[in-house]
Design a protein around this nucleic acid. Structure first.
Length: 326
DNA sequence: TTCCAGTCAATATG
DNA sequence: CATATTGACTGGAA
């Protein structure tokens, strides 16, 4: 058992393949160099910082906390009923509103300077559409993507705390994507509703995606890549109310790419996290404690099985490959 | 209570 | 459609 377990935040950063070459001023604690790796093989990064494990504060005093359910599915990732219409189901942006308590909680934490945005921003906007109560921001352009510098896109400069701008982007992606030219080398950030991110999404499979990590007040240059719908959103639009019908048929949970990467990153560091750690993980990832527990149990067993298989088949790998599989 | 091996079954893949 | 993968469940052992 490792003598010291890296912080949740640094593990999550590692899982998310943060890439430090972006021209965004970052807190040193965010540096998690990671070699370019093929899709889904991002576990080779090294962790450069160890910050104390401090779960993110609850996102909202009145709403669900990080990891708690925002949906009837109970995993915090799915849309609420009525959210199937994707990005267009609510009214115009409210630029006159103040930042929500949720965001301010994060802002206060970030402003301390010692903390950082681990791997996501959840911007709960009072009155906003439920499917947009969380945002996940990606950095880095995807070469094959329509918003790559070579392909043009929108590029306003915004402070990271400018939540309402982000929200308005999500509302009117097509127009914004045509709004201005994109210059080469500009940090590119992709925003997506959390509920739209699922295992297998194109965006998550791109090897050059990283995660936004920055301090509140940092000016980031934003560009969005929403000129086409996310695959998951498309699916939801095409299959409304399908889950309602055969409710007795149990579907197996499929981890999102983020959840899987994060879990494997943690597993790589600690094969047997404590109950408290598992609870933190479950809260951060919006998973049941049982699910997290099952994951580590299965992972321990299956990594061992894999290791034994590799040995018996004369493989040369020195570590269980399961850890890098996700 | 916790952990594990055995197993099932949903889902992914080719 | 066959096979592989994988999240979850079960019963027994410590």
């Amino acid at each position: 058992r490792p003598a010291m377990v890296p912080s949740m935040a640094s593990l999550l950063d590692g899982a998310a393949e943060y890439r430090p070459e972006l021209s965004i001023p970052l807190h040193h604690a965010m540096s998690v160099p990671c070699e370019a790796s093929p899709p889904g093989m991002g576990m080779s990064g090294t962790y450069t910082t160890l910050t104390p494990l401090q779960p993110l504060p609850p996102i909202s005093a009145e709403g669900p906390a990080v990891g708690q359910s925002l949906s009837p599915l109970g995993n915090g990732l799915g849309p609420l009923p009525g959210a199937q219409q994707g990005l267009h189901g609510y009214g115009p942006p409210s630029h006159d509103k103040m930042l929500s308590p949720n965001f301010e909680a994060h802002a206060a934490m970030l402003a301390r300077g010692e903390q950082h945005l681990a791997f996501w921003l959840r911007a709960a906007a009072p009155g906003a559409h439920p499917s947009l109560s969380s945002l996940v921001l990606f950095t880095k352009p995807c070469p094959g993507c329509c918003c790559h510098p070579a392909a043009a896109g929108a590029l306003p400069s915004l402070p990271i705390s400018h939540r309402w701008e982000m929200r308005s982007f999500l509302q009117e992606p097509a127009r914004l994507c045509r709004a201005s030219a994109l210059t080469a080398g500009t940090p590119l950030i992709r925003a997506a509703p959390w509920s739209c991110l699922q295992s297998g999404d194109e965006a998550l499979q791109c090897p050059c995606w990283g995660w936004l990590a920055g301090s509140v007040g940092t000016t980031l240059t934003l560009s969005l890549c929403l000129c086409r719908p996310f695959p998951a959103c498309k699916r939801k639009e095409q299959e409304p109310n399908k889950e309602r019908n055969n409710s007795q048929k149990k579907s197996r949970l499929v981890f999102t790419d983020l959840q899987r990467r994060t879990l494997f990153a943690i597993f790589k560091e600690n094969k047997r996290p404590s109950k408290e750690m598992q609870m933190t993980i479950s809260q951060q990832l919006g998973l049941e404690l049982n699910t997290v527990s099952n994951f580590f149990m299965n992972a321990r067993r299956r990594s061992l099985e894999k290791w034994q298989d590799d040995l018996s088949s004369g493989g040369s790998s020195s570590a269980p490959s399961t850890c890098t599989k996700a």
